[in-house]
């Protein structure tokens, strides 16, 4: 069960511990912070960034990068508003069209970068501009208020206190992790990210997997855009500006390597939580917007520096766990499962 290997569990726990520490820190600095309201606010704020970061994790695992996620989210979010307001399309049909839009943008990224062998950095930088421009075009550069028609997705369900968007996000995070660690597709991604040349010589064609990853990242960006528009209740062509950097930060805080070959969707989710908690907590203790950015920036770098020692610690703990397990196994022979 690679999802629940001791090493992985230890890594998840380490990330969770950092998040809890952050919460306790803000709790001690501001007595209002430790309340269920804070957590509900967090839960309803993170879905867009979190689903985009799931896609970003997969892209970074193959050693690529997708700078267009924020713009694609902006384009899809804007498109949603236009479809609902101007075309009077039913909400769910509009959502499907938006997701197709995201998928198309991502597929274009993948096709151009993989088939023409252009670094994904360049291709997605181009898409960043193209998608943002299209977002302005479809909205005539105006923010359009939509209201109730789209907000349902982001409004807390009475009995849970969290929104459907949050539940979808949690589900997609778990599915993303399972895809990465338990499917052939995920194995190919890790292999390609570790050493694409060797993977090719092992008889695997890396092209379809690579294109699929960019397509998925586009699709998830589209969903992120839908979440954003739903939360704001309006279609804003500026939405999602700079989101690619927050997503990369969340993924990297979660220990995914920018060099490819190593990554965890669950830890990315913790990365998103840490960024969102930092944002909310700093606001609560009255930090100014500039101060927030300085601190967030420092935390991102510190997290990556700490990551190296966290990895070592996890390896050591997992080894000692294996020793215990081996000793137990010598007493009782292992069953074949």
């Amino acid at each position: 069960m690679s999802l629940f290997k001791p090493r992985k569990l230890i890594e998840y726990a380490a990330m969770a511990a950092i998040w809890v520490a952050l919460i306790l820190l803000f709790g001690s600095l501001s007595h209002n912070f430790l309340s269920s309201r804070t957590f509900l606010t967090l839960a309803n704020r993170i879905p867009a960034l979190a689903v985009v970061s799931v896609g970003m994790t997969l892209v970074l695992v193959i050693g690529g990068i997708d700078l267009s996620v924020g713009s694609v989210a902006g384009l899809c979010g804007s498109l949603l508003g236009v479809l609902v307001l101007n075309c009077h399309m039913p909400f769910w049909e509009a959502v499907v069209l938006c997701l197709i839009m995201g998928l198309a943008a991502g597929t274009a990224n993948g096709l151009v970068s993989v088939c023409l062998n252009i670094p994904s950095f360049i291709v997605t930088l181009g898409m960043l501009e193209v998608a943002r421009g299209l977002a302005y075009l479809v909205t005539n550069s105006q923010t359009k208020y939509i209201g109730g028609a789209v907000e349902g997705l982001s409004e807390p369900v009475a009995s849970f206190g969290v929104s459907p968007a949050f539940l979808i996000t949690v589900a997609l995070t778990i599915i993303g992790q399972i895809v990465l660690s338990r499917t052939v597709f995920g194995r190919y991604l890790i292999a390609i990210g570790t050493n694409e040349g060797a993977t090719r010589l092992a008889g695997i064609n890396p092209v379809p997997s690579k294109i699929a990853v960019f397509a998925l990242a586009g699709l998830l960006s589209g969903l992120g855009g839908v979440f954003l528009t739903s939360r704001l209740g309006s279609a804003d062509p500026n939405v999602g500006v700079g989101m690619e950097l927050s997503a990369i930060a969340a993924v990297v805080i979660g220990g995914t390597s920018l060099m490819g070959g190593r990554g965890s969707v669950i830890n990315t989710f913790f990365g998103v939580l840490i960024i969102a908690t930092l944002d909310a907590g700093l606001a609560q203790i009255g930090a100014s917007e500039p101060a927030k950015r300085v601190i967030t920036g420092a935390v991102i770098v510190a997290a990556v520096v700490l990551d190296a020692s966290r990895q070592r610690l996890a390896t050591r703990l997992a080894q000692s766990f294996n020793v215990v397990k081996r000793n137990a196994n010598t007493a009782a022979p292992t069953s074949p499962n």
Binding site: I190, A191, T194, N195, A198, T199, L201, G261
Partner: peptide, 9 residues
């Protein structure tokens, strides 16, 4: 190392 293995796996 370069063409055969995924060294970090």
């Amino acid at each position: 190392k370069q063409h055969g293995l995924l060294l970090s796996q």
